[in-house]
Computed example of a mutant assay.
Amino acid sequence: MRAVSQLRLGEPEVLHTVEVPRPTPGPGQVSIRLGATSVNPVDCKLRSGYVNFLGTPPFTLGFDVSGTVVDLGPDVTEFAVGDEVFGMVHSRTGTYSEYVLARADTLAPRPAGLDHRTAAALATAGLTAWQALGHADLPGRRVLIHAAAGGVGHLAVQFARHLGAQVIGTARAVNNEFLRELGTDEVIDYSTTDFTDRSADIDVVVDLVGGDYGSRSLRVLRPDGRYLTVQRSDAEHDPRACSITGAPSSGDLATIGALVTAGRIRVHIQRTLGLGEAARAHRLSESGRVRGKLVLTPW
């Protein structure tokens, strides 16, 4: 089968299509014929070596999967061959490939109203945003979301709004109308305005930028507020700070999928490319100008 692999760390050009053996599922695993996957910022960081929890190359990137179950490992009772599923995969064999191995207990049935592209775009970004906000007491609270128009950000905006919060987002001015349509109450153009001059008494900060956005966010956060970040920031040692990472969860996926099919949440896909264009997709992702998600489909 074909997969996108890399022999060394580096720029997007290290990504190449290779032929590898089709994987055989082990106990508790299923093999999925890929319908779609998507690009997350962490993919680029792993490719370049900025983060290294996959170890040294060669490895295949990708965390999102939507596709069809084609083979079952021993002891799998959750699914049958032919089932449509989606989810988040943590593995060195990744999801940038024609067939994907995944633990059955981390997947969810793909709702009939979601196509493969939407389900793949939703998995990791949706889990990250939902696990940050979905269990919080948000009615009437003020939530500030940095990089609000991005993959995690545009979903976090909608989850916060769905849960009754007042939502403030930082983004470029070109995304103002987009974020207003998603339910953002106020959009602050970070390129012209310091958000610390425009916001105060914030109950929850979702920081998808990091760096000095941390200490600056603490200046507008209430003493009893929560600072949630997926990036390295200079606020990590504050008692109000908490690092967030999306984790595989079949239950959370089912909840998120139901919200999308009910029309309460929508996933924005800026562009779909083939897996043969993975390097191009990474360059787009690293430009910092992606609204919503980039999706990859098989060759």
Rank of each mutant, 00 (worst) to 15 (best):
T60P: 06
L296A: 06
E236C: 05
R141P: 02
G183V: 15
R216S: 04
G169M: 07
L127F: 02
A149L: 05
V230E: 00
L273E: 05
L61S: 07
F63P: 01
Q131P: 04
A171E: 07
A119L: 09
R33P: 06
L9E: 06
T170V: 08
E11I: 09
G257T: 09
M1G: 09
F63T: 14
V206T: 05
D207H: 04
D137F: 07
S31Q: 11
A108S: 15
I244Y: 04
L208F: 06
Y227K: 01
F63I: 11
H237A: 12
E181V: 09
V14R: 03
D212C: 02
R280G: 06
A102R: 00
A171D: 10
R283L: 09
R216M: 03
L144C: 10
A147M: 05
K293E: 11
A278G: 00
T245W: 13
A160R: 07
R180A: 15
S285L: 10
Q29M: 11
R198H: 15
G49A: 05
A119D: 11
Y213T: 05
L179H: 13
V89I: 13
D197Q: 14
A123M: 12
T272D: 08
H268I: 12
D234N: 14
L61K: 04
T37I: 05
G169V: 08
S249F: 02
L54C: 05
I32A: 11
I244G: 04
A173E: 14
D75Y: 11
L7P: 01
T106D: 14
A279N: 03
G87Y: 04
T95A: 13
L259V: 10
L61D: 05
L155E: 11
M1H: 09
E177W: 10
S217Y: 01
I269P: 04
R8N: 01
G257W: 15
R226Q: 15
T170E: 11
R219D: 10
K45S: 10
A102T: 06
Q158Y: 12
A112W: 03
P41R: 03
G49Y: 03
A80C: 12
P57M: 05
V220H: 05
D224Q: 13
M88K: 15
G225F: 06
V204Y: 07
S215N: 07
R103M: 12
L228M: 13
F53G: 08
L34T: 15
S233I: 01
Q270S: 14
A136V: 12
S233V: 01
L61G: 06
R141K: 15
W130E: 04
V167N: 09
S250H: 13
R33V: 12
E11V: 13
V174N: 05
G246F: 04
R103F: 10
D75K: 12
L46P: 03
D194K: 10
S287W: 00
G49F: 02
V51P: 03
R280L: 11
S217W: 01
R2L: 14
H282C: 03
